[in-house]
Amino acid sequence: ADDEVAKLLVDAYRKNDEDKLEEVKKRYNISDEQVKRLIRKVL
């Protein structure tokens, strides 16, 4: 599931889509710190 979330985050990140990032964060209840970590893992 982590990889799936990471893909969604990276996708939103690449598109610079703040709304999507927020949506994913809320849906999976993850912190900014986790977001950064997941994005770093993929990029």
Rank of each mutant, 00 (worst) to 15 (best):
I39E: 01
L8P: 01
I30D: 00
Q34C: 10
E33M: 07
K36H: 11
E23S: 07
N16Q: 10
K7C: 14
V5C: 11
L9Q: 00
I30L: 15
L9I: 13
D11N: 06
N16K: 12
D17W: 06
V42G: 07
K7R: 14
R14C: 15
V42Q: 09
L9N: 00
V5W: 12
I39W: 03
L9S: 00
E4T: 09
K20G: 10
I39N: 01
K26E: 05
L21E: 00
V24M: 11
L9R: 00
E4D: 11
L8Q: 10
V42T: 09
V42E: 08
D3H: 10
K7T: 08
S31Q: 04
I30N: 00
D11P: 01
K7W: 14
V35R: 01
I39V: 07
K15I: 08
D17H: 04
L21R: 02
S31I: 02
E33S: 08
D11E: 12
I39S: 01
D11L: 06
K26R: 13
K36W: 13
R27G: 02
N29R: 07
V35I: 09
D2L: 14
E23I: 06
V42F: 15
R27T: 09
D2W: 15
E23Q: 10
L38Q: 01
R40Y: 14
D19R: 14
K41I: 09
Y28T: 00
N16A: 07
R37T: 10
L38G: 00
E33W: 06
K25P: 00
E18F: 15
A1C: 14
D3A: 11
E18N: 15
K41F: 09
V5A: 06
E22N: 13
D19S: 13
A1I: 15
E22W: 08
D11V: 04
K36N: 10
V5Y: 05
L8M: 12
E18H: 15
D3W: 14
D19P: 07
V24Q: 01
N16M: 09
Q34S: 06
Q34K: 06
K26G: 04
K25E: 00
E23G: 04
A1L: 15
Q34E: 14
A1W: 15
L43G: 03
K36I: 13
N29F: 05
R37K: 12
V10F: 14
I30T: 01
D32P: 05
L21A: 03
K26D: 03
D3L: 11
K15Q: 13
D19L: 13
D2Y: 14
I39P: 01
D3E: 10
S31D: 09
R14I: 14
Y28L: 03
E18S: 14
D3R: 09
K15V: 08
V42Y: 15
D19M: 12
D17R: 05
D17V: 03
K36G: 08
N16H: 13
V24G: 00
R40L: 12
I30K: 02
R14H: 09
N29W: 02
V42W: 15
K26Y: 06
Y28H: 04
K26P: 00
Y13W: 15
L43I: 08
E22M: 11
D11A: 08
L43H: 04
K41H: 10
V42I: 13
V42M: 14
V24S: 01
K25V: 04
D17I: 03
N16R: 13
D2I: 12
D19A: 15
E23N: 05
N16W: 07
E4A: 11
E33P: 03
E4L: 12
L43C: 12
R40W: 14
L21W: 04
K25L: 03
V10A: 12
L21D: 00
D19N: 12
V35L: 13
R27E: 05
K26W: 05
K20C: 09
V24N: 01
K36Q: 13
L9G: 01
I30P: 00
D3C: 15
K25D: 00
L21M: 11
E23Y: 10
K20R: 11
V42H: 12
A12E: 01
K15T: 12
D17L: 06
V35G: 03
K20T: 12
L38E: 01
I30R: 01
D3T: 09
V35A: 15
K15M: 13
E33A: 10
E33F: 06
E33I: 07
S31W: 02
V42N: 06
R27A: 10
V35P: 00
E23W: 13
V10Y: 14
L8V: 06
A12D: 01
R27F: 09
A6F: 12
L21H: 01
D3V: 10
S31F: 02
Q34I: 09
L8E: 07
V24D: 01
V35W: 11
A1Q: 11
L9A: 02
D2K: 07
R37D: 12
E18I: 15
I30Y: 05
E22H: 08
A6V: 14
V5L: 13
K20W: 08
A12S: 03
R40H: 13
L43Y: 08
I39D: 00
V10T: 07
V10S: 05
K36F: 08
I30C: 06
Y28S: 00
N29K: 09
K7F: 11
V42D: 03
K25N: 00
Y13V: 06
D2N: 11
R40M: 14
E33T: 06
L8A: 09
K7A: 13
L43K: 04
V5Q: 02
A6I: 15
A12Y: 07
V35D: 00
Y13M: 08
V35Y: 11
K36Y: 08
N16F: 07
L43Q: 05
K41L: 12
Y13I: 12
L38H: 02
D3G: 09
K36V: 11
A1N: 13
I39A: 03
L8N: 02
E18T: 15
D2G: 09
E4H: 12
K25M: 10
N29T: 03
Q34G: 05
A6Q: 07
R14F: 15
K15P: 01
L38F: 05
Y13H: 04
Q34F: 12
D3S: 11
E18V: 15
K36P: 03
R14S: 09
